[in-house]
Design a binder for these strands. Structure first.
Lengths: 194, 194
DNA sequence: TTGAGTTTTCAGAAATTATTGAAATAACTG
DNA sequence: CAGTTATTTCAATAATTTCTGAAAACTCAA
């Protein structure tokens, strides 16, 4: 299977970028190939298209399955395994976000939680721990937000993204409404003003 | 400069994680050390604290400066360069987001733009190009949104994050208002109903 | 159960990346 | 300017990661 120039370009690019995304060249290329393909491919097709060894293909697929970026498919009357990427690109985005969080963020969050339990031994440690707390709190805020946004359906997510910084104006409106409501509540129940 | 156990743990962890974040162990460790330090450090202090070579420190700092995650500082009456990380953790977040976009996303976006210009030679290429367009459009949406959000001040950004999925409800409200406003406009100007 | 077809494993080779020490360069001081 | 201190560069080497080929393991049909 010789690749068309268009596909070739994209596949090679993904191979090169792979390094920056935390996977090796082969993994990047396999993913790119499957992403563009209009039908599932088997390991031999991948091997031949990319000019790599069969075992390398096997390992690359294994890694992509661990990332949940590639799924196994079966074709009637064919014993071989076929592979494809999820169709829905929004779904791919969600998977990517979640897997990267698991690999790149959770371990650090966990370590930070542990270190924040310790009693600082001196001023230097106190300052270090304070910095760690800042980092911890920010990461918690970010991952919590991401987890919430994960749950939005494609349409809502698209709408949120299209809104861009416009969300800021929306927040202003919300604040005004909240302040107004609080004002009204305070009028009814002066105790709550604290 | 022997590191306190608390700092040591954090520094070693950042070294290990460095690989997953696209930098080498040394770079991760230097960053961690500077992030926790309550005062700027010079290259010799870093070298000694981490038990690495002076030249390795020099290269690590250079890379962190390229990331804009470390800044040079000077101390009165001392010829040596001192280094520190930005204080404001929100600022660090913005820098990180922007640099990662530059390195991990922009090159792909640029390639996608190019490939989308080409005329597909057959159905296979047509399908591949369609997939690339999906990817392109999603990335544009995401980076555009990120660029907008970048501009928010710390407080607004914090508020947005704290809102979480609550933003969904806010969007619903906005939709109702918009629909209502359109309804009113349509009543005034029936031509626009198209 | 045999054996052909398929996939996975894994030790070693190849390629790449990280680190060092020495030398070069730059910046300052007296 | 000469001498001193500080920093950077870079070729060599060390460490790590990727890739391969051969063998093992698995799967299914006859």
């Amino acid at each position: 299977m010789a690749l068309s120039p268009l596909v070739q370009t994209f596949v090679l690019h993904f191979g090169e970028m792979g390094g920056r995304w935390g996977v090796n060249r082969t993994v990047g290329q396999i993913y790119a190939l499957l992403f563009l393909s209009d039908e599932p491919l088997n390991a031999d097709q991948i091997t031949e298209s990319l000019g790599i060894s069969r075992s390398n293909t096997s390992m690359g697929i294994k890694e992509l399955e661990a990332w949940r970026l590639v799924r196994k498919r079966h074709i009637q009357g064919d014993r071989r395994d076929y592979f494809q990427t999820p169709d829905d690109i929004w779904q791919i985005l969600r998977i990517l976000a979640e897997e990267r969080r698991k690999r790149e963020i959770d371990p650090t969050l966990s370590l930070l939680r542990d270190t924040l339990m310790a009693e600082p031994a001196n001023d230097l440690e106190r300052h270090a721990q304070d910095r760690m707390r800042q980092m911890h709190d920010l990461i918690e805020l970010l991952t919590g937000w991401a987890a919430d946004v994960q749950k939005l359906d494609n349409e809502s997510l698209g709408q949120l993204l299209a809104l861009g910084a416009g969300v800021s104006r929306l927040l202003d409106v919300k604040n005004k409404i909240t302040v107004f409501a609080q004002g009204k509540r305070r009028n009814r129940d002066p105790e709550e003003a604290a």
